[in-house]
Design a protein around this nucleic acid. Structure first.
Lengths: 152, 152
DNA sequence: ATTGAAATTTGGTCGCC
DNA sequence: GGCGACCAAATTTCAAT
């Protein structure tokens, strides 16, 4: 994992569909060398995949909320995590320190759906309380941190 | 925006580097038809881009935290947001309802760096308090919700 | 590891349905 | 809108270094 790898990772984080030829031009290697390096980054698990970034409101997911999940005295985290995993409205799930076991991000079409989902979250076996924060605006999300230096 | 568009979006959310030929096979259209549809989804802003998903710990970002940003009585959200935007450690930033103006996700190499970043966040003009939740495990993150039905 | 060249597949455009 | 065909460009493999 050298500077070239970091440059390739940066480039693919900002444009996941960049061609090997483009990448090759930007780092100054041949396209086959780039291909080999990217393949290694993929198979070693550094690059876990590629995703299209979709505007949530354009696909009918206009309501976002952060929900803290507080387990009861005998709630088992693994059981709760499995239930969260089974809910497609839960887009992200983090196990956290503190009296909440998880923080999840949910996306739903409407506030009515949010209401329903919060009920479903509270109904998970082992969950004592939920603490919901409604997202009013997503300023930015999962943006590519620059890992390596770049010339303009 | 019909069922075919939703299928294409789903496919590109789970594999952002899928070729038009692959997409064409999976939805049962010609590759040129797929090309046209995807181009329209891109130019209309439904698909906002493509990103490589990188394992954070593999690029030296092993510590993640969620931080609530509580502004003071005269803190202006726009000013705070601009300061958050300028910090590369802040990967996501949500404006939220409640007494916290923002919830941000930060990623840093070490807990020492987290300590520094929390100081920097508190030092932002207009910020009164921060409330930090350390992420112990990322169960899943930004996973592709199935928007359309799929056959196995 | 990187190269350069070869074989295959894809991207992107066009006229036609 | 979608299709089939086209050609330029890209992916992918591989022997050589």
């Amino acid at each position: 994992m050298d500077s070239l790898d970091r440059q390739l990772i940066d480039a693919l984080r900002s444009d996941g569909r960049a061609s090997y030829a483009e990448l090759a031009r930007s780092v100054g290697l041949s396209s086959s060398a780039v291909h080999e390096r990217v393949s290694k980054l993929e198979s070693s698990g550094v690059i876990r995949g590629y995703r299209a970034i979709v505007e949530p409101s354009a696909v009918g997911l206009g309501v976002t909320a952060m929900v803290g999940i507080e387990p009861g005295e005998y709630g088992e985290d693994a059981v709760i995590a499995a239930a969260l995993d089974a809910m497609p409205e839960v887009e992200s799930c983090y196990g956290v320190a503190g009296d909440q076991a998880f923080i999840v991000k949910v996306r739903v079409p409407t506030v009515d759906d949010l209401h329903l989902i919060l009920g479903a979250l509270r109904a998970i076996d082992g969950v004592a309380r939920t603490r919901t924060t409604v997202v009013l605006s997503t300023r930015f999300e999962g943006r590519p941190n620059r890992l390596a230096t770049e010339e303009p």
